[in-house]
């Protein structure tokens, strides 16, 4: 076997793994720059001020953090957020950020690529359920390409699973 044949065989065998690695790296990049950690990773107070708690990376609003009723909107101030940045109140009611880790019971572990893509495209849970609520920027994110959404989903499926059952959203008071 010539050196060229050995090299070609190696490249042929390694290509899929290299492609997967590139996809995961692209997904990590997109998750980072699109700000997913801003809301889906709970924030804590660090030495230099608030910072994401990466021990809970992308696991959504902590189940144990039961919040009191949201403050009433006053004047032009219509939105409020919890200190963790994982719970938001506004004209839509109260929303809690989702667990994006691959935990099978409380995260995206049983989701398919189609479920994920259709959620972002339609703004509905799994593409056919309840509306995805603010502050999730669906009107912007729905413009991600299919390849971007595949990379993001692949990356999210590769991170550590964290069991955390996020509370259900609440409707506006009096509705």
């Amino acid at each position: 076997m010539t050196r060229m044949t050995i090299l070609a065989t190696f490249l042929l065998l390694a290509a899929p793994a290299l492609a997967d690695e590139a996809k995961l790296a692209r997904g990590k990049y997109l998750v980072t720059v699109a700000g997913c950690n801003d809301c889906h990773t709970p924030w804590k107070m660090g030495a230099n001020g608030p910072e994401p708690d990466y021990s809970l990376m992308l696991s959504g609003h902590p189940q144990a953090n039961v919040l009191p009723r949201a403050p009433k909107a006053q004047g032009p101030w219509v939105v409020s957020a919890a200190a963790t940045n994982t719970a938001w109140a506004g004209p839509w009611g109260v929303s809690y950020t989702a667990n994006l880790t691959p935990d099978k019971e409380t995260g995206l572990g049983k989701w398919t690529q189609r479920n994920f893509t259709e959620t972002i495209r339609t703004g509905r849970h799994m593409g056919r359920g309840r509306p995805i609520l603010p502050p999730m920027p669906i009107p912007m994110y729905k413009h991600f390409t299919d390849a971007d959404l595949e990379a993001i989903f692949a990356y999210l499926q590769s991170i550590p699973a964290i069991r955390n059952k996020v509370p259900e959203p609440l409707p506006p008071e009096g509705s």
Partner: peptide, 10 residues
């Protein structure tokens, strides 16, 4: 009656 919880959602 919570529209974010109830089924069917549509």
């Amino acid at each position: 009656a919570n529209p974010y919880v109830r089924m069917p959602p549509l």
